[in-house]
Design a protein around this nucleic acid. Sequence first.
DNA 1: GTGCGCATTGCAATCGATTGCATAGAGTTT
DNA 2: AAACTCTATGCAATCGATTGCAATGCGCAC
Lengths: 355, 355
Amino acid sequence: MGKPGKPRPVTPADSGRRMQMADLARLAGVSTSTVSRALSGSELINPETRERIQTLARKFNYTINSVATGLRSGVQRTIAVIVPFEKASRQSFADPFLHGMIGSLADALTERGYEMLLSRIDADQLDTVAALIDSGRAAGVILIGQWRHHDQLNAMAARGLPLVVWGAHLPHQDYCTVGGDNVRGGRLVAEHLLAQGRRRMVFLGDCGLPEVAQRYRGFTAGLRAGGVGLPAQQRKTVPFLAESGRKAMLALIDANPALDAVFASSDLLAMAAVGALRERQRQVPADVAVVGYDDVELAAHFNPPLSTVRQPIHEAGTALVDALLMMLNGKPAPASALLETRLIVRESSQSTPAP
Amino acid sequence: MGKPGKPRPVTPADSGRRMQMADLARLAGVSTSTVSRALSGSELINPETRERIQTLARKFNYTINSVATGLRSGVQRTIAVIVPFEKASRQSFADPFLHGMIGSLADALTERGYEMLLSRIDADQLDTVAALIDSGRAAGVILIGQWRHHDQLNAMAARGLPLVVWGAHLPHQDYCTVGGDNVRGGRLVAEHLLAQGRRRMVFLGDCGLPEVAQRYRGFTAGLRAGGVGLPAQQRKTVPFLAESGRKAMLALIDANPALDAVFASSDLLAMAAVGALRERQRQVPADVAVVGYDDVELAAHFNPPLSTVRQPIHEAGTALVDALLMMLNGKPAPASALLETRLIVRESSQSTPAP
DNA sequence: GTGCGCATTGCAATCGATTGCATAGAGTTT
DNA sequence: AAACTCTATGCAATCGATTGCAATGCGCAC
């Protein structure tokens, strides 16, 4: 090997500056081109040199600056996941369903080598979403829930922004959605409750949101098929917030003392409803059956265990990410997807409680 | 299927390429220097020109490329929020407490003009966290939970990485933590349960995690002060997972048929414990009092409403972000912070249930 | 008419990594 | 020994925005 005579340059970046490729090149006595190729494992570089440079990089904790790489290559491996919230109600982020969705998206993105930029934004300023892409901070956007902003989403899609939305598929929709079959979900609940002999139902949820509206449609259609109606005093418009759910349920009980079943458009609302029923000395499920929506993890561990419509959260994350990556690869925007939706019957809606 | 005709505005950068400053400069008949200054509102630029350029930018949805800006300026306004998970148990992301924390961090970061990169990483590969910073993808890191990795965290701090951890403050700790006063939390629970006349307690939680260990220490210290012990068969090591909690609780009931109180180290575990108690026909709180930890949103709406130790989640987000930003501004790493911790007594632990 | 000051604007270098092309040098062939 | 290969490496342009400094042009004073 060489003689120890040559004075090794001292750590180049010990001025507190972040180490960069030029420093490593100086240390290795080569050019940055060589370092770049060595670190990327190029065959052009002499295996010994390559190994030496890689060792050096490890030793100095050098990692290629991905901002510079991103600029040069023009590719972005960051996806923005947006959780819109309504300023008025501060609604949305509290829902455990969202939590599951975010976890699932995190997994799907990581698996495919993407990073996740998570952002809550005011639903009234959805256009800031476009800026995320225009400014190159994210390659594409996954939006959780379309809320009341169908038209804005259509406009964004028209601009060609890579966008996928978790939510309902609507008529005249130019953007791509992935979601459960809400109409079917609502119908399943109606059929189940009818089969349990329930007749005086109430509904909790905000039909101003497309997903909820579809669940409601399926639910009332199912009831109608069984000869049961759902007059106005048997439903209550309420945001996805536990406390609102509790208050709304109390009001519904007072307005319908004889009610025997509740369909809540989310598990969170269903849980709040159970609390309200308890406050009014109603037994669940003996007096009143309760069915939620989403099948969040806690639903199975609630007291009593909650019947609910399962949204396949894991598949949802995968489907959302795959749809978006397709758009990013220039393939035609995939058609909106409807994921499997099924009813999970637990104790909260059974006429004869499990032993 | 249909006509792929896209209604695109006629722009000079119409080849599908993203609009950039040079395009805008050409449109405005000026140089990119002028555009740059105009968009940043520089006083150097003629007000009319400035206005004209800004209008043009808005019209073409032009947003400055923040990758290029980031490279040039060398500043990063992205903070990585890391949720470590244990490969074996896939533990962590399911806990609703985390969800609250992430929301709180999102708010605090947004308020200060930072973006949040959310990442779950294998707790055994914490060193990939360092790469996030070395590669310039994030300016700093907020880690939720120190888990079993005190030494690795110390090593990262020694390297000078901007890092703040939500968790317990430990002896010989070189990194900055923000957390609740876990010892006090545990003691409060002990005192409360003793005051309720409970004597045969059980504990649910994994004392391999520093936070849980502190809660346990406070709890047993409080019990000891009241002359009550907690022998080994009255505690169970269990990860923060509902199903594990349920099983562990069933085992504890079988081993201690006469138990009259449960302290669970998280609300999730407490809820699972209530379910298990119910399976074994124990009434909560009449037969067995249950206290959780965290005060997640659902705790108040559980059945029965759950007594718990509140972790001030909103302050936590603010404190974590502020501590990190201080480090990033070159100020000395702030001392670890202990946030206020208090007991919220609800129905699940009262000897006489509320009317 | 010449010179000076001021308001605007443009030029060119820079941030850090990548890559097409050029080149040094060792080895081989004729 | 000249010509030619082939391998390993370096040079310099490039990605898109920013900014110190230079330059332009106009108004105004002498």
